[in-house]
């Protein structure tokens, strides 16, 4: 084994090209055993391609990767025994019941009938799908399907769990339910690779965050480290009148440490500040002097969205032109 027991997943200089598009342009990553790596990036950044390579669904053009000590291209079958994958779309069979879906996956991992049946029941209880166990999955809500799909990834108690955008397309309730389940998984000490477009999700669930854009890793570290990288705090205001925005921007430029950002549509303006509450009080005093009505005011540490914006020049969640 090349990778030490401390590292569950390692990738070195992964490159993958589709036609003229370079989906991965030299991705390195390392996931210590028992930790959660959150891979964060917009659509088309290369998250799913990375996942597909690490789960043996796709071969890289160059570069190497090991999962649980096995080379993904040389020993794909050993890698498959060590992983559980929950893909971007809940890959459950709609006409099968929850129980049948999990039973089938257990059987395909090589379990005998009794073991596969027992494991399916165990997981249905754990994922609170007991009452729906005998119903076809097409009657499930989005959140329930996701939970069933997640349960499918855990059937063989894999050393490494790979979750590709586990909450994409879910309503807020479904998202909360899914987070809860992933949280329990993490508490149990699983090694998890999680991809997401949602900064909040990476912030909540991941030990380490890898920011990826255009097939390259552009930053990595804990959420706190990434936030402190761009320094300072954010002062954000919401005005009553859009007409007051230019005057407000001027005030913010004076108290802030960089150019303020103004959004006319939401009547919102924000600016990075170095002096915290002093800057807040100063800004409000000057606005008050000009009779500008403020509806909402906040001072907060930068969010991961701010981090993304400052690293890439565009927001993580904004839709990019396909190029």
């Amino acid at each position: 084994m090349t990778a030490s027991n401390q590292v569950a997943v390692r990738a070195e200089a992964l490159i993958k090209t589709f036609g003229n598009t370079r989906a991965l342009d030299g991705v390195d990553l390392e996931i210590p055993t028992g930790t959660v790596l959150g891979m964060l990036g917009p659509n088309g950044a290369g998250k799913t391609t990375t996942v597909r390579i690490l789960t043996t669904l796709l071969r890289p053009d160059s570069g190497r990767a090991w999962v649980a000590g096995h080379d993904v291209t040389a020993e794909p079958d050993k890698v498959r025994r060590a992983i559980g994958l929950s893909g971007q779309y809940a890959a459950v069979d709609e006409n099968l019941t929850g129980y049948e879906n999990l039973y089938m996956v257990g059987r395909l991992y090589g379990m005998n009938r009794a073991r596969a049946g027992a494991r399916a029941k165990e997981l249905l209880t754990r994922f609170r799908l007991n009452e729906a166990a005998e119903r076809p999955a097409k009657t499930y809500s989005g959140g329930m399907r996701r939970r069933l799909d997640l349960a499918g990834a855990l059937v063989a108690e894999p050393a490494v769990v790979v979750l590709d955008e586990p909450t994409t397309g879910l309503d807020p309730r479904g998202r909360m339910e899914t987070w809860e389940v992933i949280g329990e998984l993490v508490a149990d000490g699983a090694t998890v690779l999680l991809t997401t477009q949602y900064l909040e999700e990476a912030d909540q669930l991941a030990d380490t965050i890898l920011v990826i854009d255009h097939g390259k890793v552009i930053a990595s570290g804990t959420a706190d480290k990434l936030k402190s990288q761009i320094g300072g705090e954010r002062l954000e205001l919401v005005l009553a009148e859009a007409a007051d925005l230019p005057a407000t921007a001027k005030v913010l430029a004076e108290v802030g440490s960089a150019e303020p950002v103004v959004d006319e549509h939401t009547r919102r303006a924000h600016v990075p500040v170095d002096t915290g509450s002093k800057a807040l009080i100063e800004a409000l005093r000057r606005l008050d002097a000009q009779d500008i009505a403020v509806l909402d005011v906040s001072l907060h540490r930068p969010t991961l969205d701010d981090v993304f914006l400052s690293l890439t020049g565009h927001s993580a969640e904004e839709e990019k032109d396909p190029s």
């Binding site: 789960t55 043996t56 669904l57 079958d77 498959r80 025994r81 992983i83 994958l85 893909g87 971007q88 779309y89 809940a90 890959a91 459950v92 069979d93 709609e94 996956v105 395909l108 991992y109 090589g110 499918g152």
Partner: peptide, 17 residues
């Protein structure tokens, strides 16, 4: 289309199955 083949392909099952 539904991603079920992806799941099958990620399992340690026969490629013929």
């Amino acid at each position: 289309q539904k991603g079920i083949i992806d799941r099958f392909r990620s399992l340690p099952m026969s490629r013929l199955a």
